[in-house]
Design a protein around this nucleic acid. Structure first.
Lengths: 254, 254
DNA sequence: AAGAGCTTTCCACGATACGGAAAAGTCCTT
DNA sequence: AAGGACTTTTCCGTATCGTGGAAAGCTCTT
């Protein structure tokens, strides 16, 4: 139920992105499994529009049109979210993020950085699996099909603390639902702890907001109290812009 | 020599961007001239991949995948350009930008900010008409079809200093070609002056670099001397990464 | 100089996207 | 509330448009 050539063109773009933004035709072929002729034709189409540029060594790289388009998309999402994320920064002193579910992945779509010297690096645009992050757990906890998602993605170990057993994760999701927030205690990145709460549009969870920082500083905070404050911010945000984040369809199966 | 459905899908994305990132199906139809059924099918394909989101009022908006891709593209272009832009900042003390021509527009694709308190705001991703900016004049001066571009875009007045007559602008472009750099003396934004130089790949101008800041500070500098320094930096940059900026096709006519 | 590897072009086939038109849904207006 | 106008979504037969294998053309090694 989609357009083959568009789908493949997007595959090509994403293959480029995963190669750090630049790759040769054969590298793209290896990654996408598409025939050379096809890739070349798609690249020409993207080239004509500035979505891709060709370097002097014939490799292909993501082009400047994407900078503009991505900027527009980011501004769109960012303008809505910024004031609320800044409230979270004020509340916690740590970097705040907004994330949504995209297929089986979690994508960070906006950020407000803490003003502290030691702080989380910008990760707007980053895609991670849900099982090893606080935002992921919140989003997963809201899905009736959480078990299937985990079955599809697996629970790869990211650090010694990552929860790698599906039943254990499902039990933790019950806990998340019960207390209304999720924690990540160095499960995605060693030494980095996070707290996340759901953003609701009515009774539906459409996104998650989190604060993250060095383990020591996060653990020094009263977790339940901070979560309470975060929930208030997230509820305000959800009431204002929730509908705009609502996904078009339930869950694309890979 | 391109793929119809990919081309149209990109038209749809760009139509969305031009509507401020969100638009209804019929608005997209009005802008692209494509039949409803076709647009709907393309939107579904983009929806499935997260390039577009559907809001609760059924309007379509640019999606979060674009944030990720745009970020990757920006990082890519930025990495190449940063060291050179920073040299310009060191040279002038002002914010430096890299811009390319995209169709009839000028797009800023990278920036290095001045460390001064009063400085230009980030404008990566911004699209402006060429006649009212220093980078625009440099890029226009390099095109044999400058007159046609001006005829297509017009020369809308942005400030009291904007040059709004095409013959006058063409005369100024001659001057730009002759002396090798262009100036914008408050023609795009009141009180903001810029100096721009071409980035060459061989004998071809593929981009422009500029420094911009408050009128007083820019005017205090020796313009010819600064331009000379900037040209040296731009030539180095062009020699290293010029080919990657080379546009794929001449100029899409709107 | 010649080869190996990668990129680009070509072309006949048929799968795929097209798009008009009808159905379904939504939102004003009376 | 109910009708009507508009917008969005679905449908389906047809012709077009994209497909991909294979050959030609480059470029950089051995």
């Amino acid at each position: 139920m989609s357009v083959q050539s568009v789908d493949r063109a997007l595959d090509v773009l994403e293959a480029l992105a995963e190669h750090g933004g630049a790759a040769s035709l054969s590298q793209i072929a290896a990654r996408t499994g598409l025939p050379y002729g096809t890739i070349h034709r798609l690249l020409r189409a993207l080239l004509d529009r500035g979505y891709v540029r060709q370097e002097s060594d014939r490799r292909y790289a993501l082009g400047s049109t994407l900078v503009r388009l991505g900027g527009a998309a980011e501004r769109l999402v960012g303008t809505w979210a910024r004031p609320y994320l800044e409230k979270l920064v004020a509340l916690s002193g740590e970097t705040a993020n907004l994330a949504v579910m995209e297929g089986n992945f979690v994508v960070y779509i906006a950020q407000a950085a803490s003003s502290r010297r030691l702080r989380m690096f910008a990760e707007v645009g980053r895609r991670v699996l849900p099982h090893s992050t606080a935002v992921g757990k919140v989003l997963l906890a809201a899905r009736p099909d959480a078990a299937e998602v985990l079955a599809r993605t697996g629970l790869p170990r990211r650090t010694p603390h990552t929860v790698v057993s599906a039943p254990e994760m499902l039990a933790e999701l019950d806990l998340v639902r019960a207390r209304g927030y999720a924690a990540d205690l160095g499960e995605e990145e060693p030494g980095v702890h996070c707290l996340a709460v759901p953003v609701r549009d009515g009774d539906r969870v459409v996104a998650a907001m989190s604060v993250s920082g060095p383990a020591g500083r996060i653990d020094a905070l009263d977790r339940a109290e901070l979560a309470l404050g975060m929930l208030a911010v997230a509820d305000d945000f959800g009431a204002e812009v929730g509908p705009a984040l609502r996904p078009g369809r339930p869950a694309p199966v890979p």
